[in-house]
Simulated assay, not measured.
Amino acid sequence: MDKTETTVKAYNACAADFTAKFMDLALYKDSLNHFINLVPAGAKILDAGCGPGNIARLLLEKQKGFRVSGFDLSPEMVKLAINNVPGASFQIGDIRNLSSWEPGYDAIIAAFSIVHLSNDETLQFIRNVSCLLKAEGLFYLSCIQGDHAGYATTSFSRKEIYFNRFSRNFILTALTGHNFNIVNTFSQAYPEPDGTTSTELFFYARKMPL
C-alpha cells in the first residue's frame, strides 16, 4: 500500500474525530482571516484538500459573495463537507492531478494539504496552482516545518498517516520559481499529543502577471 492510499484510508476512518477537533478552526482563524481580507468580494475560490468543509464554511460566513468549490481524496471527508457546507460544491479529487479544473480562480487555498505529498509532488502542485490562478490571484499555503517525511499517528487518528515536512526556504523557492510574489509569511507553534510542539508555516502569495 503506498503512502497516499494509506493516508486516505486513515482519514476515512478518522473523519469524525478530525471534524470534532478542527471544524471550528480555533488554531487557524487568524491566519485564514488575514488571507480572506486580501480576497476581493465575489471571488472564485478553490479549496484544495477541503477536509470536512471547515474553511469553506468560514469563507461563506464572510458574506462576500465568494463562489467556493473544494475537493478531497477522502470520500468520507467529502461527504462531511457536502453536509456541513451546502452553499459550496465539493467532489472527490487528488491534488496531485488538477487537470480536471479549469483555470480562472481568484484564490486557491491549500491548508496543510501538501503535508501528504513528496517534495516532487509538492513542486508539481505549486506549478499547477499557478496555472489555475488568474493573474494577481492569491494563494494560501500552510505546512509543517522540518526536513523529513514518515508515518505517524496523531491526536485525531490512531491509524498512521504519511507526513512530509518542509523548510521555509524550500517553499519560498518553489513559489518564487513558479511566478508567485510573496505577500506575507509567518509561523506558529502546534502542540503535539506527547507534549512537544511542531512549527507550522504559512505563506500568502500572489501570482504575478506574465
Rank of each mutant, 00 (worst) to 15 (best):
L32Q: 06
E102H: 12
D2M: 03
N54D: 12
C14L: 00
A43M: 06
G65S: 05
A41D: 15
V39F: 03
F112P: 04
E61D: 15
G177Y: 10
S118H: 11
K9L: 06
V129M: 02
V8L: 01
D147P: 07
P193Q: 00
T176D: 10
A111G: 13
F125T: 03
S118E: 08
A43K: 08
N37V: 00
S99I: 02
V115W: 10
S187H: 11
A88R: 10
V115D: 04
P52H: 07
T154D: 04
I45F: 15
Y11E: 10
S113H: 07
I82G: 09
A88K: 13
P40N: 13
A174D: 13
H148C: 13
K64Y: 10
L46S: 11
D94A: 01
S155A: 13
D30F: 13
N33K: 06
H116E: 06
D17N: 13
L123N: 14
I161Q: 05
A107C: 11
P75M: 09
F202Q: 02
P103H: 06
T154F: 02
V115Y: 09
Y28R: 13
I92P: 09
I55L: 00
K134A: 02
A26K: 15
N33S: 04
A110Y: 14
S155N: 14
L210R: 13
N33A: 03
P52S: 09
F22Q: 01
R165G: 02
Y162L: 05
Y151Q: 11
H178N: 15
D17G: 01
P75V: 09
N54H: 11
D120C: 02
A205W: 05
N12D: 15
F139K: 06
D194P: 09
F66H: 04
K207H: 01
C143R: 12
F22P: 02
F18H: 11
I114Q: 05
L172A: 03
F112K: 12
A88N: 08
A20K: 14
G53N: 00
K134L: 03
L123S: 13
K21F: 04
M23L: 14
L27K: 14
S69H: 14
F202T: 10
A152D: 14
V129R: 06
N12T: 08
K62R: 15
V78T: 10
S89E: 15
D47R: 15
T173Q: 13
T197R: 08
N184V: 04
E192N: 15
F180C: 03
N179K: 12
H116W: 09
I92M: 12
N84G: 08
Y11N: 06
G70K: 05
D30G: 06
T6E: 08
A174L: 04
T199I: 07
K29A: 06
R165S: 08
I126G: 03
F180N: 00
I95H: 08
Q63M: 00
S142L: 03
A10F: 10
